[in-house]
Amino acid sequence: MRMRILEISVGAFVLAGVVALVGLALNVSGLNLSNSDNTYTVYARFENIGGLTPRAKVTMSGVAIGEVADITLDRDMLMARVAMNIHGNVDFLSVDSSASILTAGLLGEQYIGISVGAEDENLKEGAYIEDTQSALVLEDLIGKFLFNEVSE
């Protein structure tokens, strides 16, 4: 009987470990397994990406619709080329959509916000978003602000 209680408690313990891991995965890290593989890639070129990093989220109206896959330097255009993996069920981004690099809060992480245009045709795998807006670089802002102050 003693062995039985022992086995039950060990079983409960192992189960608690699994539950904890699942809790960490779903609740804490927000792991979403369902649409991880069903994505398509679009590209955008930016003058300046600021502090954007791979895995940063891509949002539309604040809703996450994908993430940044890769950031490279485009040698011909001398601009940053950002590859984004967009969830497959978000298939209504028009070709004249615009992408801008935004900052969460004043000091928060940077992410890409997409706003949809008016065209009927939608972005396909490998398409480029032409209308882009670079990251706000705080130093530039401060510089401009100071310049204005001085010139006044």
Binding site: L21, N27, V28, S29, G30, L31, A64, E109
Partner: peptide
Amino acid sequence: FWANMQNSVDFYDDVLNGL
């Protein structure tokens, strides 16, 4: 509170590495 947490904690990079 939870959204910020879920956005910044990555399952593979953070949870699995911790494990």
